[in-house]
Design a protein around this nucleic acid. Structure first.
Lengths: 199, 199
DNA sequence: TGTACATCAGTGAACGCGCGTTCACTGATGTAC
DNA sequence: TGTACATCAGTGAACGCGCGTTCACTGATGTAC
């Protein structure tokens, strides 16, 4: 039974959103067209009225996830808050709604050209944004610290998720929040005791 | 046709090695039992004489990859060399023989309990090793820097591989080498010019 | 050391299930008058 | 505004391919005498 054009467009959006979440949660190969359509409240047969293939949807779903990530991170106006949010326990456990880069990491390389281009644009934007959030230092130094912070937070989230022991996972998140959330950071020197609140 | 027990054991080893490389290169779902056995110079039917299932092999293959990584990294006695090797262009392009954590990242979470336990042990060992390589600071501070370095290098390698543009990828590797390869690092302060050779 | 037989590593055909994709069909929507 | 028809979003059965797994078979290895 046909539905209105508005409803059809809405359905399409819901398919992309659902796929975006399911892919991050279970990986590209861990989710079938059937499950995605069911998750969007439809039947699988209608899929090809909206997309040319599962790969095409994957490209859109990753792009959407990255856009949402960017939106979320724009809400923070200082590095500490942004990093605390990114390295929160909520984000660690909520893969489905979290950073696509951390969730799909290595698999993205094997995706289509479009997906990788979208990801590259996201990384560039993210680096620019991080560089702005550093308060001190010249442009070159801020960019370097932005790269280190992006690599560090992404890696920390992946590690915290991969590791089996809650205590170690918590420790990784906590240390990384401290190391990458402020600049200069705990990485910097042989500071003993204190969490740098004074500085 | 039956082969000698020694030859059979050797075949089994070759299957694990081949799988270890192919999984890192193409992901767990990107490689079939058929391809693995062919890569090891055998036919697929013999697979189940060696392993209970593909998942069982995956567990062994990841463990093997992590062991090899650990072996390689033991060869370096200072942090600079270790990080330079880990963040080299060779490692970026040679996924098949590189770090399993960076190559399989998010997918490992969805693997069996055994795999995750092996990975956790690897992370612990790696952190201890990195902490030793820092020359200054107390035990607590060294561990923190080890965590930051592990997260940073892992994240940087994943980013450098994910990104589409060679120049950006090179920049990420270079900056991360500088930031995580020495302590204190470029992250530390608003140092301008010079690569810290003097310090 | 040599012979006879049991064992079993590896082979290749076959099975069966899941999944991406296709298609004939349905019936509500959109449009022309 | 109302009616008649064409369109087309969604349905559910079916197809076909790939892949994990099984199995009867082969023939070299290992063992018992």
């Amino acid at each position: 039974m046909r539905v209105s054009r508005a409803k059809a467009a809405e359905n399409r959006e819901r398919i992309v959103d659902t796929a975006s979440r399911l892919f991050r949660e279970k990986g590209f190969d861990g989710v079938g067209v059937d499950a995605i359509m069911k998750g969007a409240g439809l039947t699988h047969g209608g899929f090809y009225g909206h997309f040319r293939s599962k790969d095409d949807l994957a490209a859109e779903a990753v792009t959407r996830a990255l856009d949402r990530s960017m939106e979320r991170q724009r809400r923070f106006s200082n590095l500490d808050d942004l990093v605390s949010d990114y390295l929160s326990e909520r984000h660690r456990s909520d893969r489905a709604n979290g950073c696509a880069l951390a969730a799909l990491g290595g698999d993205i390389v094997r995706q289509s050209e479009g997906v990788r281009r979208g990801l590259t644009a996201y990384v560039r934007e993210q680096l620019d944004r991080l560089a702005c959030l550093f308060r001190d230092g010249g442009a070159g130094n801020r960019r370097k610290r932005a790269i280190a912070a992006l690599a560090g937070t992404t890696g920390a989230l992946i590690l915290a998720r991969a590791v089996d022991e809650p205590a170690l996972s918590d420790e990784i998140l906590a240390v990384a929040r401290d190391a990458f959330g402020t600049a200069p950071s705990a990485l910097q020197s042989r500071r003993v005791g204190g969490r740098g609140r004074r500085g």
